[in-house]
Simulated assay, not measured.
Amino acid sequence: MRHILTLNSGSSSLKFALYPLEGAASLDTLTPRYRGKYAGLNGGTPRLTLRDGEGQAVDTDTAALPEKLDLPGALERLLHWLDAFSDLSLAVVGHRVVHGGRDYHRPVTLTSEITAELKELEPLAPLHQPFCLAPVDPLAERYPELPQVACFDTAFHAEQPEVARQFALPREMTARGLIRYGFHGLSYDYINRVLPESLGEAPGERVIVAHLGNGSSLCAIHKGTSVASTMGFTAMEGMPMGTRSGRLDPGLVLHLIQQEGMSAEEVSEMLYKRSGLLGVSGISGDMRELLESPAPEAREAVDLYAYRAVREIGSLASALGGLDQLVFTAGIGEGAGPVREAICRGCEWLGIELDADANRRDARRISTAESRVGAWVIPTDEERMIAWYSARVAGLA
């Protein structure tokens, strides 16, 4: 049986999913045979989690993993596991690629030339792009005839109006590609496609989706098209995140370098890895731990996160000219009821009336029937989006 393999590679993890090709006719019929994740790569404690298509855990011999495991090693183990299936062959591999730059606005079949061009974008997403592309060459060497497809997190935002993408920089800088790109596009694309069915009604023209996880952003969608988003030139802008600072005064960065004597590398490491929820709380970048902690610093970090989300929603609502629906998704958005409550309470002026009981139950609709603006919790599925696109780009569906 032919399958679609999706890969989402990060600095410390490798997420994968396996979809039977026969289900690729639509998003609805595309269901996974397996989903899994290698975690603790590149210096941590390696772990493997695996679930079947019903979401049930599959036994894995985690004890057999080496004490240290890097991304190439995890990929090799994954491919060895797949080779053991007598009824399985790969039809296409789909990769989540964070940055498509100015030239790649839709999924593409990877060639050596395109892969080289995408590697040139690594300085724009240094914590993501190198790892997204790392499996491409090993797979090409092992399966030279196997098509590989790149699906871009920036593509969903490519139709934003120029005024939403431009920085107030000298024109030659803009011409060189120093613009707002936006990220988490595969997640927004998926939510946008399933929204009418999930709501059971027409969603209206003005929707804000809050992708709140270890990386957090929000997107304003008008008539199905992204018109503004909180992330910009890099995946650091906008909301505070697990370890990323979110939006800062550029003058603060200059101060750190010129007055505090920090190098550019030290500032980058601090803003990407030691800021956000972790930096404010001094405890953890994991929202679950902060919500359970009695420490006032944890409360301060959660409050700042919710406050900034409310501020961003107000900005995006102005870009939309109002708001019809607010959708929460990703790990925090789907699982942190207290955070959703704080955000919805801060958006009552927009017409959101929270159903507190529904919110505590993580119900799909968390606004009251009388609320002028609907508030919803809808799980995202970036892997399914990658699989769906990959089958089409490869001419298999």
Rank of each mutant, 00 (worst) to 15 (best):
L5Q: 11
T6M: 08
N8P: 10
S9Y: 07
S9R: 03
G10N: 14
S13Y: 03
L14F: 05
F16H: 05
E22P: 01
L27T: 09
D28I: 10
L30T: 09
A39L: 12
L41S: 14
N42G: 15
G43P: 02
T49A: 12
L50K: 04
D52M: 01
D52F: 03
G53W: 02
G53T: 01
V58R: 09
A64C: 10
A64M: 07
P66A: 13
L71W: 05
P72M: 12
L82Y: 04
S89D: 15
S89N: 06
S89C: 01
D103K: 05
Y104A: 07
P107K: 06
T109V: 07
T109Y: 01
L110M: 09
T111G: 07
L121Y: 11
L121K: 07
E122L: 02
A125E: 05
F131A: 11
C132M: 03
C132P: 01
P135H: 03
P135Q: 03
D137A: 11
A140D: 07
E141N: 10
E145A: 13
A150L: 00
F152Q: 02
D153F: 00
A155M: 02
E159F: 00
A164E: 14
R176G: 14
R176H: 14
G177M: 06
L178T: 00
I179Y: 05
F183R: 01
G185Y: 01
S187W: 01
S187D: 03
L195N: 03
P196M: 08
P196Q: 10
E197H: 08
S198W: 11
G200Y: 14
R206E: 15
V207G: 04
G213H: 04
S216G: 13
S216I: 10
C219A: 06
H222R: 14
T225W: 04
S226W: 00
S229W: 09
M236T: 05
M239A: 10
M239W: 04
R244E: 07
G246N: 01
D249C: 05
Q259W: 00
M262R: 08
E266T: 11
M270C: 11
L271Y: 08
K273P: 10
K273C: 15
V280Y: 01
S281L: 07
R288F: 05
R288Y: 12
S293D: 12
E300K: 08
E300W: 00
A301M: 08
D303M: 13
L304C: 06
R308K: 15
R308V: 13
R311Q: 15
R311E: 08
I313A: 12
G314V: 11
S318V: 06
A319K: 02
L320Q: 07
D324M: 06
Q325E: 14
L326F: 13
I332T: 11
G333P: 02
G335P: 01
G335A: 11
G335S: 15
A336C: 14
A342Q: 13
C344H: 02
C344I: 06
G346L: 05
C347P: 04
W349R: 00
G351R: 06
E353P: 09
L354D: 04
L354Y: 04
L354K: 02
S371G: 03
W376T: 03
V377C: 10
V377T: 10
P379M: 04
D381F: 02
D381H: 05
I386G: 04
S390G: 09
A397I: 03
